[in-house]
């Protein structure tokens, strides 16, 4: 694989966890540029922790996260924020913010909070709102949006940040199936049309299979496997990672792997 040469975000010998217990050890990961990467793994396997560490929200116990070949810990936070945006699982927003006001915050790394919003900033915000299909809802307060709309508004803010890399922690949780697909389709669009690198933690294996170009399976205190969905998603892997017996068949519509769980293996 030639991933390493096309990866702006990677890690070297990373160990993560909390004060006493390590969750993951010796993680070497390279996020392929311009692709959608899905992180999968059982609850508590450390996939979210890994994502947050890549996004410098958590500090690793050991090892380094590299952004464009430089240790992320040594870079100014605002510089990172121009390259990489992270959307938390259930983000908290200030009360009473409208969609547009939220989206404007995405411009912060480019201008600081003390300078006024420029014409250019407003154009970027407008584009982000258009890309997420929110142009008609710009003045709607966040708390009056549906779950899917709200998630798109947060994605719009991340877009306005104009970062080539976008990390998302379980962007589809708490959403019904229609809204899940709404968000995933949006992410695929952004990847295809704007070439953004997307890394997301997902729970649904079939979503990972359908939408991701690259899958990272986290299990047993490390990266268990990484690769293309077709190569990676096998009954063996699903048994090791989730402790579940499953059949994998080609999806009738698009040929991506489709995982059908059989029963839980006690």
């Amino acid at each position: 694989m030639t991933e390493a040469s096309h990866s702006r975000l990677s890690s070297k010998d990373l160990s993560l966890g909390y004060a006493t217990t390590k969750i993951l050890e010796h993680v070497d990961i390279a996020i392929p540029d311009g692709k959608i990467t899905a992180m999968i793994g059982a609850n508590g396997s450390g996939k979210s922790t890994l994502l947050k560490t890549l996004g410098r929200i958590l500090q690793p116990i050991d090892g380094t996260v590299l952004l464009d070949g430089r240790a992320i810990a040594g870079l100014p936070s605002r510089d990172i924020a121009r390259t990489l945006a992270l959307l938390p699982q259930s983000p908290v927003s200030p009360d009473g913010l409208t969609v547009r006001q939220l989206c404007r915050f995405g411009r912060h790394p480019h201008k600081g909070m003390l300078t006024r919003t420029t014409r250019h900033d407003e154009e970027i915000v407008e584009q982000a709102l258009a890309a997420t299909g929110l142009s008609d809802l710009t003045e709607r307060p966040l708390d009056r949006l549906s779950g899917g709309q709200r998630q798109r508004a947060w994605i719009a803010m991340a877009l306005a940040q104009e970062t080539p890399i976008l990390l998302l922690d379980e962007p589809t949780t708490y959403l019904d199936i229609a809204h899940q697909l709404e968000v995933l389709n949006l992410l695929r669009d952004l990847n295809r049309t704007q070439g953004r690198t997307i890394v997301m933690v997902v729970h649904d294996l079939n979503h990972a299979a359908q939408y991701a170009d690259h899958i990272v399976a986290v299990a047993n205190g490390g990266i268990h496997a990484a690769g293309r969905p077709v190569d990676l998603l096998t009954p063996d892997l699903i048994r090791t990672v989730f402790d579940v017996d499953a059949m994998v068949i080609p999806h009738p519509a698009d040929g991506t792997p489709l995982c059908l769980p059989l029963s839980i293996d006690f």
Binding site: I57, P76, S77, R78, A85, P88, V92, S93, H108, P109
Partner: peptide
């Protein structure tokens, strides 16, 4: 009013 994770992501 943002959560800490969002703030960090924005470079704050």
């Amino acid at each position: 009013g943002f959560g800490d994770e969002t703030l960090i992501s924005l470079g704050i």
